[in-house]
Design a protein around this nucleic acid. Sequence first.
RNA 1: GCUGGCGUAGCUCAGCUGGCAGAGCAGCUGACUUGUAAUCAGCAGGUCAUGGGUUCGAUUCCCGUCGCCAGCUCCA
Length: 606
Amino acid sequence: MSAFFVSIFVSGVEDPPLVAAPPTNLDKLRHSAAHVMADAVQRLWPEAQITIGPPIENGFYYDFDSPHAFTDEDLEKIEKVMGEIVAANHPFVEKEMSREEAIAYWEARHEPYKVELVRGLPEGERITFHSHGQFTDLCRGGHVKSTGEIKAFKLLSVAGAYWRGDARNKMLQRIYGTAFPDAKQLRSYLAQVEEAKKRDHRKVGKELGLFTFHPWAPGAAFWLPKGTVLYQTLSDAMRRFLLREGYLEVKTPLIFNLALWEKSGHAAHYKDAMFHFESEDQTFGLKPMNCPSHMLLFASDLRSYRDLPLRFHDQGVLHRNEASGTLGGLTRVRQFSQDDAHIYLMPSQVPGEIGRLIDMVARVYAAFGLTYEAKISTRNPEKFAGDVAVWDEAEKTIEEVVKAKGLTYRVEPGEGAFYGPKIDFDINDALGRKWQCATIQLDYVAPERFQLEYVGEDNATHRPVVIHRAMYGSFERFIAMLIEHYGGAFPVWLAPVQARVVVVSEKHEAFAHDVVSALAARGVRVDADLSNDKLGAKIRRAQLEKIPYMLVLGDKEVAARTVAPRTRDGKQLDPMPLEAFAERIVAEAVSPLLAPVADRSAATVG
RNA sequence: GCUGGCGUAGCUCAGCUGGCAGAGCAGCUGACUUGUAAUCAGCAGGUCAUGGGUUCGAUUCCCGUCGCCAGCUCCA
């Protein structure tokens, strides 16, 4: 596994936790460190108002409302004062107050955010305060015994964050930090973060010449020749994989009259996030997703129940006008394509198909050795289309299938698409951030809006259900995950250059040409380093390019018509005849996605 | 979009408080003819993101714009 962060492999039959887990000792330590940091900040800037400061996955933060804008230099000052508070070894003391006392307490101290928090506490809840030394904070508790236990901490960054996570509220200043039981663990964590940065896809993508960007096309990648090999190899593998799984590949327009999204309902929710333009008194838009065009495709012909499930696969280019501040590398872009598909089925076929898709996700991700976390997103009461009863049914169906499959998952209330609930599969990037990749979305709304019909066994017309699904998700994001997962050292089937011929001296160039053309003729992506450098330099260059095989050619190889392969991990294989090497690498270059399927019939649903 | 930071050669980065813009790698040329992670020498390479302002003078200070980065909001 590439990322050092904890990744939960989906297995086991467990219900999601319904209540927050009790704080761990590490949480207590970090939450205590947050208190100490708030204390230090207020000692340095007494006018800074305190808000909240919880522990998080790899540390803690505290949000302040302060006229002084904190800088990176300030972090050192704050750390210094924190060090003094720790050295003083103040015990953490709990005190309970009535609601009125608590409000009066914070009003007297000019802490309006705390007043608001107290007012928002549910009736009957204990209102507790925790103090160390002179500093007191409103807080449920969960602390170490005294500040002296906070032995190893470090402040990391300062960033903006909206009060209560709402963009309509004031933006506060958030200071992030981390804390560990001892200095060794802290050092080790910081070193791991540094290591992780080395596999950042933006860095590796530049080093390996995979893709680039230009300020004139923000959020849209240029795929360089080597990156294009990666992209197309993945695309082709998925295309062939899905054909074998009974999908029909289609191509649909990139530009549509806006009427299409008025009809689908997307315009109501996402019009501002679309690129649109006028032409001859009509408004057109670049498609941000394929679903509505597939609805038109379904409706373009008479459909029988015998055709169902009908699965359209489409890798068309999509554009979404994402807010500038959200763009980043390949993980969040404005132009991308997906291994998108829409499946039309009879209601009775839904559970079986979802189960089949969950299995497919497992198979696809296993092919890359990627681990993921599943989450079920449910109806957003303020942003949904369709009938509540239908939604409830759909959510129930999804949860039942997921449980039956033994998938470990968490529920994200209100995070569903506007047309239906979904199962998303998140992958962690090198820095531990989660990105949605695969998705399975149930949709009873679109067929309704587009008046889709099929003729049933009873010769009457019926409305199909639609499942939106993607395995990779966006190619751009998925490739970012793969780059970080493999650290740029791609398996042979994905490597942009699979083998490099390295000659010992100019004398061996003629044979090098023979080797290159023989391998290229077998479909191997091979090139030759004929530069004037010494062998060591060429090996080093190939090594830095993370090429799986280097084929060293010198006098011995020329004489025997053999190649001396060296692998990327520094192993030297015995010299072998060219043909033997060709067979070996061709075998290795087969996509694991296209390995023989065990038994399709078992997975097919009726 | 919001808050903060950043933008110097193809890449990685120096450039103190304003005074002629630098290195390594990569590139080009030449020499060397090489056996598993860097052969040597020479040359070339810059509107210091961009537009404005302050100043005798701006890569450096101030403002706007664009882009990138972190986080927040958003994510069909």
